[in-house]
Design a protein around this nucleic acid. Structure first.
Lengths: 188, 188
DNA sequence: GGCTGTTATGCAACAAGTTGCAAAAACTGT
DNA sequence: ACAGTTTTTGCAACTTGTTGCATAACAGCC
């Protein structure tokens, strides 16, 4: 149940329409809670239904016409409650690591390619985070910004970890390829 | 589409019944791809249907009676194919980080408690990984074990990161509580 | 005025994971 | 033999996320 709260947070930062939200998700909140526009529209509907947000009464709202939402007091209360309660950490799922484990059983053909591909992805993401950090957080005092910076530090730290681990993994896999056959165990 | 392949991997390592699989998931593969017994039984059914695995023909299989599965050639082929293709890295979702961001907007009441709780969880997980590493991987040469060790290293690295980040976050949040009010912004 | 492309909102079907419960067999104590 | 508990298998409903497509408004162009 996090998407609605992610949306409430975003709307409190700035009232927005569905598409605006989608775009903002693409480059900030979405780093830790991605969402497509379909998800967002659906959730906006529910939040409005529940009385947590409302459409700004600018014009008659019709399909294809922009509709801005703002958070109502009930919505702020809901978010506050959510943010002060406990959350049971959702399990982590990682297909790449799983694949490594599979490679231990059926052979490591194509494994290095995949590792390199992921390495590039994580390096790019890391660069993006570091760019944001350099741009938006020079010297910070405002508590609000300090928290946001912590969020970014999590991103940087995570990507740094993955880059390091992938390099380690690549070195290991290449070393294994040197002595021994090239692609694991071809036919069992 | 990773759960079936996780199961195939586990079954290739050792043919098992549904419950055995569930237990093995709880302490190895499940670290990176958790699954409940309900999921596993459902998936076993599909895999059998698809001709990837079969029940060992020990007895007449009925409800409540143990049923062991083994991987058929088609299943091994499927896993091999999956393990050599590309995988589009699934997005990461993290509610705790999201919550930090919410705290920047509605106040950080209860935040330190939650951070401490998560810190304890990650410390325990890290200890568990390190114990496994010490026990199972003294000096390794077998390629199979080197890959499995890499998987474990990913776990260790990830948990280490979270522990560090949480400590950093806690220090920061406590520092913010010192100067300024204690619980964020109570009523806006 | 009609064509085309972009912006914006949304439905519907599907896929995957979660939760709660139930039922058959096997084990355990009396 | 029987009752109660545990093991093992499984169904069904629900929630969340994904994918593909539909529809309306608007803007520019010829």
């Amino acid at each position: 149940m996090s998407l609605p709260h992610a949306i409430l947070t975003a709307l409190l930062e700035k009232p927005s329409s569905g598409l605006e939200l989608t775009r903002r998700f693409d480059r900030s909140i979405g780093y830790f809670w991605p969402a497509t526009h379909q998800q967002i529209y659906r959730e906006l509907g529910k939040l409005e239904q529940a009385g947590f947000i409302r459409a700004l009464p600018s014009e008659q709202p019709s399909r294809g016409q922009k509709k801005e939402f703002e958070v109502l007091p009930a919505g702020r209360a809901e978010l506050t409650a959510w943010a002060s309660g406990e959350q049971d950490a959702k399990p982590v799922r990682n297909a790449l690591v799983l694949r490594l484990r599979a490679a231990a059983v059926v052979g490591r053909a194509g494994l290095d390619t995949e590792l390199r591909r992921h390495l590039a992805l994580h390096q790019r993401q890391l660069a993006e985070y570091e760019e944001i950090e350099a741009r938006d957080f020079g010297a910070v005092a405002d508590p609000k910004d300090r928290l946001r910076r912590l969020v970014l530090r999590a991103g940087v730290g995570l990507e740094t970890f993955w880059v390091q681990w992938l390099q380690e993994a690549l070195a290991e896999v290449e070393d294994m390829a040197d002595d021994g056959e090239a692609g694991g165990r071809p036919g069992e």
